[in-house]
């Protein structure tokens, strides 16, 4: 594929774009995994929300 005399600018644009969008996708997925893990840890420790605690107290 011949991208002409300005190929370096085109590849740099697509490379930077892929890096930034890849990073934001990666971060969003990692954050999701982290929160799901934190919630299941809390679940395992038997933690309940205040509303749930109120239900069980009544």
């Amino acid at each position: 594929m011949d991208l002409g005399p300005h190929a370096a600018f085109i590849w740099a644009s697509y490379g930077t774009f892929a890096l930034i969008i890849g990073a934001i996708i990666g971060w969003t997925l990692f954050d999701g995994w982290r929160q799901t893990k934190a919630l299941s840890d809390a679940d395992r420790r038997g933690l309940k929300r205040r509303s749930a605690s109120a239900d069980t107290r009544d």
Binding site: D31, G32, Q35, L39, A42, K48, R49
Partner: peptide, 29 residues
């Protein structure tokens, strides 16, 4: 792609708030 990421980030934020409220409830107890 933006909307997919936005939906996922909103899910993450809801989970984060649930975890936070669980930890607060634990401290209060």
């Amino acid at each position: 792609l933006f909307f997919a990421l936005h939906l996922k980030a909103m899910q993450n934020e809801i989970l984060r708030r649930r975890v936070k409220s669980l930890r607060l409830a634990e401290v209060e107890r």
